[in-house]
């Protein structure tokens, strides 16, 4: 097979990753770099395996993912409520617009000092940051999706004697699913980053803490290989969610329907 053809395949991502790992290993082995800054792959892998067997890394990962899931859930429900009310009431729509333009550009981390004062430093605070990261992009996408719905769908909803809520749930939501999935992807990415940053700043909040806390701990104890192990875990989860979770979701919905 031609080399060019290989890089056009869906698995090209993994070839690039392997090439990067090779480049990494060559640099770590041959270049005059300190292993404290640039540990070799064996060291990173050993640190990862050690953390899996002896440490809490899997639990910490689950903790972080659990927080994200709860945050996503709360964020999506809130976003749905606000988008629904915006569809029903133009007055509320202008309120939502204002909120989005105020809060959307505001990174959750910038709110941290205030959050510490308001609700302390526990999981609740991290959850707050996640919900903040999820809510605004989700509202943006939901309202954009609802606005993009063809006029005929609204008429069909009326024709079937649906009230507004029924129309939204039975017609608007599936009709704007490509927007909702795009919103979910952005929300996931933002929420995930926010959660890890917040954990790195707050530290352990529910006992074992999350993956951000794991990395922070490795950093302060100068376990550079451990820091990279944590980063690898984050990348792996990122790719898993992007390729498997969202990939499956899209394949079974908008791709199958031909609306993606």
């Amino acid at each position: 097979m031609k080399i060019k053809a290989i890089f056009l395949k869906p698995y090209a991502k993994y070839i690039w990753i392997i090439l990067m790992l090779v480049a990494w290993e060559v640099t770590a082995k041959l270049a005059p770099v300190s292993p404290l800054a640039f540990p070799s792959l064996e060291l990173i892998l050993a640190a990862l395996i050690d953390s899996v067997i002896n440490g809490d890394i899997l639990m910490q990962m689950a903790f972080s993912l659990g927080l994200i899931l709860i945050g996503l859930g709360i964020g999506v429900v809130l976003a749905f409520l606000m988008s629904f009310l915006s569809v029903v009431s133009p007055v509320f729509a202008s309120f939502t617009d204002t909120c989005v333009s105020i809060f959307h550009p505001l990174p959750g981390i910038a709110l941290l000092p205030l959050i510490i004062l308001w609700i302390g430093t526990g999981s609740m605070a991290i959850l707050f940051v996640i919900v903040h990261s999820v809510l605004w992009p989700m509202i943006l996408n939901m309202t954009a999706g609802f606005k993009a719905i063809p006029e005929v769908y609204k008429k069909i909803g009326m024709n079937y004697e649906f009230n507004t809520l029924q129309s939204i749930i039975r017609i608007f939501v599936p009709a704007s699913l490509s927007f909702l999935i795009a919103g979910l992807k952005i929300s996931w990415a933002r929420g995930w980053r926010a959660a890890i940053s917040a954990e790195m700043i707050f530290g352990a909040s529910g006992g074992i803490g999350g993956i951000g806390w794991y990395i922070f701990n490795k950093r302060v104890f100068m376990d550079t290989a451990g820091v990279y192990a944590g980063i690898l875990m984050i990348i792996a989860v990122g790719i898993f969610v992007e390729d498997v979770v969202f990939g499956k979701l899209e394949k079974n919905t908008i791709k199958k329907w031909g609306v993606a």
Binding site: V152, N159, P174, A175, T253, W257
Partner: peptide
């Protein structure tokens, strides 16, 4: 006074079908 199920409209637009079904 308002649309009802006894009186169903068929539109010209092809996108009147629900793409997800």
């Amino acid at each position: 006074e308002k649309p009802c199920r006894q009186c169903i409209m068929v539109f010209q637009e092809f996108d009147q079908l629900f793409t997800w079904q």
